[in-house]
Design a protein around this nucleic acid. Structure first.
Lengths: 197, 197
DNA sequence: AGTTTAATCGGAGGCGCCTCCGTTTATCTG
DNA sequence: CAGATAAACGGAGGCGCCTCCGATTAAACT
């Protein structure tokens, strides 16, 4: 019988020291707010300052600006994924689907500042972003499938096609009635989806 | 009978003072060499230094890095356009066409360092580059048309399609046999062009 | 608790970007 | 040729990027 064995199992090699983890979390939190407010071009030194750490610490955790963007982005994409499950429980499948699409489009819209950087990232360093987008794709797929199985929408729709349609919606240029127009277009999509069930 | 009227007609509003024109030319010359050697990411301050002017002068002439790149790029594209006429005189139309395509692909290959910046430019600020590419398109078109009219190649080929084919050739990843492979592919294209005349 | 050690911190320093404005100079006018 | 003037020059200055390495400190060890 081993005496009170210390659980020294270091488990993952990704073990961070307590202070390191704290700093990292704080950086992500601050970065998320900064990106949302001023776009991805915000000064990284500002972010470090606001997080109360040195610039060196920021760069150790996130070697490039893109790494930081990716982490923030993924976090938010994940919450979008989680929203899918939540909406599924509270609403009929078709309503859940529509509401989720609205949120998706609205979410991307707020990140318009990101688009420049994102376009570069998505073409060059695709592996960094593949996972984040996988989340979203998965969410949409599950909503679509659920609604399809219960007979609320057609079942011959490809998830990728639908995402494509959504992306053409959120690339509508800025304008006062942006949101209304998007919602109308989503409504139109939904009509199409429900049409020939 | 007006007396010796001074030709004070300012003609173009783009009248540069002698020193300004000298500096501008020198900057373009130095920039062309620098871009070729170290890629478009070269320090602009270095370029100004090498041209023997202050950084302020560089920025007055070229408000952004892209403007400078565009000018250099266009100059070289123009020489590519000129080569088309020259080749047409010295060779049979089909040979001229093939040789020109080789040069085109070879030229872009040497500018691989540019590709990153270029991709951004070509998608975002298209108007800046439209003209430069127009030159090249025109050259290819004239070669293709000449060869077509004299019965050397098919006449149902679209210039844009052919350029597309070429661009897929020059985006072949780096490798020792890069040039050979490109030439083989161009040969293949030529076979296709000559096929069903 | 005290010591060791290895991970983490953080800011100084070097470089490039870009702007602003006092100084220089080409060109025009008398 | 001298003087006027508008155009052009050029570098200092402020900011951000990113790296490097001595100082700090959490966590493991005794």
């Amino acid at each position: 019988m081993a005496s009170a064995e210390p659980k020294t199992i270091p488990s993952a090699p990704t073990r961070l020291r307590a202070d390191a983890r704290r700093n990292r979390d704080k950086l992500v939190e601050v970065a998320a707010a900064a990106f949302a407010e001023k776009g991805v071009e915000t000064s990284l030194e500002d972010i470090a300052r606001q997080a109360g750490v040195g610039i060196g610490t920021l760069y150790r955790h996130f070697p490039t600006r893109e790494h930081l963007v990716e982490v923030v982005y993924r976090r938010e994409l994940e919450s979008l994924g989680a929203a899918a499950a939540e909406l599924s429980e509270k609403h009929p499948p078709d309503v859940a689907l529509e509401e989720w699409m609205r949120r998706f489009v609205g979410y991307i819209a707020t990140k318009r500042g990101m688009s420049n950087s994102l376009r570069i990232l998505m073409t060059s360093n695709s592996s960094l972003f593949a996972e984040g987008f996988g989340q979203v794709r998965g969410a949409l797929e599950s909503l679509l499938k659920a609604a399809g199985e219960k007979g609320y929408v057609r079942t011959d729709i490809d998830t990728a096609d639908l995402m494509h349609a959504l992306s053409s919606i959120y690339s509508i240029p800025e304008s006062p009635e942006w949101r209304d127009r998007s919602y109308r277009l989503i409504g139109l999509l939904m009509d199409g989806l429900r049409a020939a069930r």
